[in-house]
Design a protein around this nucleic acid. Structure first.
Lengths: 332, 332
DNA sequence: CTGTTAGCGCGTTCAT
DNA sequence: ATGAACGCGCTAACAG
């Protein structure tokens, strides 16, 4: 006896109910994860019928009434930074482990984002995790028509919960390390000035350098990439200093390759070098970059807390800070 | 005059129709991207009403009848390989550019697939791109209840279309390079043996080495990672040979760091070294690994062709091959 | 060209 | 505890 399917050939809950000899409502309850009143034997029959039919609920149809799809949007600029690699794999894995799935939304620029979202399922996600710095919290809430927006890009307002690495502690330690080694002059190699995170980062460096009486000889602007580090290292604006602080490890690697002591020594010839992000790559022998990092698992644990217990975050734009650390390597 | 909303507060197509003074069907047609028969003035009124109401279609509801969601699943093992970084950013960007969105499905193990089958909204996607080698074509089709599955992991059957880099050409060139430099003995450092791609790769190396009369002194199995390269390089099984071929750049980097000539020279002391993948990182000065790669943009263009013109692939499990190249660097 | 109607698959009243 | 009926938002099919 073959079930007569109409559209996609998938069994629906109606098929299950029919096979079990009960009404659709009973089948719905028996299959529900919530405890709903159904007699034991009928529940048994429904479950068995679902089993033999290979029934899988249509979650899109379900979402039509429940208003929830178990989908999370991860909004990023790009995913080609080395530091991303360490983060996203774990993040996706953890999100999946709580029964949700991830839509990756890549927004190279702020242009047309809204339009793009409207034409896709991402528009209906339960929550959005915003790493990209293309938009402020209010815009994102409006875009997703959803208050469940977690800002991870350093941009927040009174209503938006956010998780931000507390970079001051790491930067303080890094600059202290330099000061303790007799550094008196420094150069700052920065990333995109438009980023809120970057602005705060640079401000921290400035104040810490000043506090340690280290003269800031200049700021050179790159784009976080290895190539931009190389470019700046040979630019006419480059200055002779005791230490170079880069706001990304990749830029520090570029600087290192240009200024190695000897053909391929592990440290620069004339200055101490500091990076940022503590990417896995810094474990490679050729790039022992002193760096600042944070515990990714703590960070992600907080993100998951937001997804599973949103109320704890709702009370007036909670701001969670994840501590950073400084790790000294050969480069400094 | 305020529209009386019931649920989410979003205007529905019924609200638009009412305001425009037409039936829901007319509103639906006027708003459709496809050219459907609607009189000019009514279309105008509908569009205007939608405009003033700020109407946005509910794509989940639409998908209920159209059976299409503009969602593409990307199925991966992990995304922590360096070679992934170069690929996925571009892939996501391109998929988004044709109006589809990407749901990332990470299956770290074959067990993860079972887990996925239970939850997962992903089985309503329009297509699945399979990079993970934990599932064969039949399983994936069942997982997604969808025949629109593109195998990119080297595993295919008669029904599944696939795109595979033609690694033989690159390997042939790499081995020829070694032979031309007088290499007579070689070591092969491999990755996970379970992978179909890896098996083919190793087989190619074996036959090419034999053809060039290079003796294969041994095969050491790693896991593609830098650390596994280091580990193998110091293991008791390591042999003195003229050349070492690694099936990933990361392993080659690990081997290089253990066997550098001098403190940090760019080449191994006693042998020529070859990697695989031609990751961007090989452009870093400290790891000039001779490698085998393929044009990512061609590869992705073929994937997009599958998404936009699936019929061209349907005819009996089309197999598309993307050519590989060999690039010589300092390490060999 | 237009409007009415009938689903799509599911959860949820509301009577029984 | 149960099942009929309705609604979610939208589009396809069918009449007019």
């Amino acid at each position: 006896m073959i079930e007569p399917r109409k559209g996609t050939g998938q069994p629906t809950i109606a098929d299950v109910a029919e096979l079990a000899g009960v009404s659709r409502a009973i089948a719905s309850r028996a299959l529900s994860s919530e405890p709903r009143p159904v007699s034991a034997d009928k529940r048994e029959r429904v479950l068995k019928a679902a089993q033999t039919l290979g029934y899988k609920p249509n979650l899109l149809a379900r979402s039509l009434t429940t208003k929830t799809v178990n989908l999370v949007a991860v909004v990023v600029n790009h995913i080609h930074d080395l530091s991303d690699l360490d983060l996203f794999d774990l993040l996706i894995s953890e999100i999946q482990s709580i029964g949700k799935q991830v839509i990756f939304v890549r927004v190279g620029s702020s242009q047309g984002i809204e339009e793009f979202l409207r034409n896709g399922i991402a528009y209906h996600v339960d929550a959005a995790l915003v790493f990209s710095d293309f938009a402020d919290a209010a815009t994102v809430r409006k875009m997703f028509r959803n208050d469940s927006v977690l800002m991870l890009n350093g941009m927040r307002d009174a209503a938006a919960p956010a998780i931000i690495p507390d970079e001051l502690t790491g930067i303080t330690a890094a600059v202290a390390d330099a000061a303790g080694k007799g550094v008196r002059t420094a150069l700052l190699v920065t990333g995109r000035a438009a980023s809120a995170v970057e602005q705060a980062r640079v401000a921290h460096y400035r104040s810490e350098l000043q506090r340690n009486e280290i003269a800031l000889a200049g700021e050179l602007r790159g784009d976080y990439s290895y190539q931009s580090g190389r470019r700046l290292a040979v630019s006419p604006d480059w200055k002779e200093v005791d230490a170079v602080f880069c706001t990304s490890d990749a830029m520090a690697m570029g600087v290192l390759d240009v200024h190695r002591d000897g053909v391929l020594q592990t440290r620069p010839k004339a200055f101490r070098l500091y990076g940022f992000d503590d990417v896995t790559l810094a474990e490679y022998e050729a790039y022992p970059i002193s760096s600042i990092g944070y515990d990714k698992s703590i960070y992600i644990k907080e993100i998951l807390r937001f997804l599973t217990h949103p109320k704890e975050f709702r009370s007036g734009g909670t701001l969670v800070r994840v501590p950073t650390y400084f790790v000294a390597r050969d480069s400094s």
